[in-house]
Structure formats: C-alpha cells, structure tokens
Simulated scan of single mutants.
Amino acid sequence: MKKTGYWKGFGSALLLVAMVTALGVTATAASRSIEVEDGIGISINGAKFTPRDADGKKVPVFLYNGTTYAPIRAVCEAAGMEVSYDSATDTVELVTADRAASQKPDSSSYITQSRAKEIALADAGVKAANAVFLKANLDWDDGRAQYEVEFYSGNTEYDYDIDALTGAILSSDRELENFDIGTVSSGSGNVISAEKAKSIALNRAPSGSTVVKCQLDRDDGRTIYEVELRNGRMEYDCDIDAVSGQILKWESDYDD
C-alpha cells in the first residue's frame, strides 16, 4: 500500500542501515511531502518487533525511494544499544553494547547498597529504625552507575539518586502524603490488577521477554506498578499508572 504525503518533516524517523553500527548519527529535518510504502515489518533474531515511542504508541516503518526508515531509538535499544541525543550538535549518539560495557567502571569500585541507604537516611535526617525501604537498586542512567533509593518514614516518601562511585547525591525528593503502602492492594478501588500491569508491560517489550518483578508502589502522589522484565541480557524497567494503565516510564539497559 502506498500513501501520498504520509510523512511531512520525517526527521523523527531516522535511517536504519544494517542495524546501525555507527557510534554517531546526525539527524537533519526537512519539510516536504513524500510518497511512501508502509506496512513494513521488523524482526530481531527472528522475533517480530513493533517499534513504539516513549508513550507506548506504535511508530510506523516505511519505504521511501528504496530505503527503509524506522525510529532509531526503539530499534537500537531493542538491539542492545544505548541511545542518547546531543541537542547542542543535533546528533543522535549510538553506543554498541560491547562498547558501553567496556566504558563502565569496575563494579568493585562502587559503594555498597548499605552505604547508599546510610547516605540517603543521613541527608533526610531519618533513623534507620524509623524507615521502611521500598527499594535501593543499582542502576545505570545517563552514562552513570547510581543507586535509586526510596523509603518511607511516617507519612513522608523519600526518593534519592546516589552516584555509585562517589556517593554523591545526584537528586533527592520528598513528599508528604497520607499513604500507607501496606493498605493498598491490587483489588482496591479502581487500581488495575498486577496481571493487567504485567500484560501492558509485556505488550510494550520485545517478544520473548519475561516479567521478573511487578510491585505496587507510590511515586509523586500517584499509585503505580513498577515492572521489571528481562529478555536475554536486556533489562527493561517500566512504571505503569495503577489506575489508568498508562505507561509512565520505560527504560532499557544492557546487563553485562
């Protein structure tokens, strides 16, 4: 099927060539009317892959003048590459999984999870005996290893991002709320079930992914499901609004 004028200004769909092995691709936007052939499918390692944007909406793949165009972030992240954008140079920067792994510091240099908790508690002025930790996970974000620490004390929620190498606090947030994590269940109110949340996450993830965690949580005054999935050595983290089922956050990481 062909569509005329199907994409105007196709800078948002970048050229994908041989799974993109380059480390930097510059995107140049142009405003024009073009005739394209749509309905093009993608498979990764034999499994059907449906590219989606940050909001979980399907993004079309199409042919134009014999060249296939596809959303570079969705495809490259599914292939295990790290994708970032440099607004200063208008450049999409790609890093292959092996290069990303080689650039990461030795994990033996990281502070421990216990130390990350101590740093967060000290900054919050909360004693360990008065805190209920929801998570203290080692993660990789924006090219940096960091601990994501979240805990409750009384009716206050604390969120910290702590540099795993230096122990520096990268970000912190606290929110006062009338919420008891122990009183919320997947069957209460209009909250969707855990199975529904898993289904939403699996529908977004590449074929063959497996859910390894699905936890009801509270973040920024909103009840959410935190869902973690794995597919080979790829790890996916998904936050889903527990009422609407909307995907609020989607992150992928190569586990080396």
Rank of each mutant, 00 (worst) to 15 (best):
T68V: 15
D161I: 08
V184E: 11
A197D: 06
T210W: 01
V20R: 07
G245K: 11
D53V: 01
T89Y: 04
I181T: 14
V149K: 00
F49V: 09
A79V: 05
E37L: 12
A74R: 04
I111S: 09
A30T: 15
S84K: 11
Y158L: 09
D217V: 08
E118H: 04
G46A: 07
L15E: 09
A13Q: 04
R218C: 14
E157F: 07
E35W: 03
A70V: 06
G154C: 13
S31I: 13
L216D: 11
P71Y: 01
D53L: 02
R222W: 00
L165W: 01
P60L: 06
T21V: 14
V184C: 07
S31F: 09
D219I: 07
T21I: 15
A22H: 05
A205W: 01
I42T: 06
D237K: 12
D86I: 04
I44R: 08
D219V: 08
V184T: 13
S33K: 10
G245M: 09
R52D: 03
F62S: 08
T68D: 08
D53Q: 07
V243A: 12
T223L: 12
Y254S: 05
A79F: 02
D255E: 13
A74I: 06
Y147I: 02
T89A: 15
Y225K: 05
L14E: 12
I162T: 03
Y147P: 13
A47Y: 10
I119F: 01
G154E: 11
P51T: 15
D241F: 00
D123F: 00
V227F: 02
V36D: 07
A97H: 14
K249Q: 09
Y85S: 07
R32Q: 14
K127G: 13
N65C: 04
P206M: 12
S43H: 07
E226W: 02
A79E: 14
T210K: 14
S252F: 01
Q146R: 13
E82W: 01
S108T: 12
G11E: 12
G208L: 04
G208W: 00
D139A: 06
A164Q: 04
M1W: 02
P105E: 10
I224D: 13
Q113E: 15
S114N: 15
A145I: 00
Q215F: 05
G5H: 05
A205E: 09
R222F: 00
K3G: 11
A168E: 07
A129W: 05
I169Y: 02
C238S: 05
A124T: 03
I40F: 06
Q113L: 10
A97Y: 15
I240L: 03
D142K: 05
K127Q: 13
S12G: 10
S43M: 13
A79I: 03
A54W: 03
T28P: 14
S171K: 13
D98G: 04
Y236H: 03
C76G: 12
V211R: 06
S107H: 04
Y85R: 10
Q113A: 10
Q103A: 15
G245I: 08
G189C: 02
K198P: 08
A205C: 08
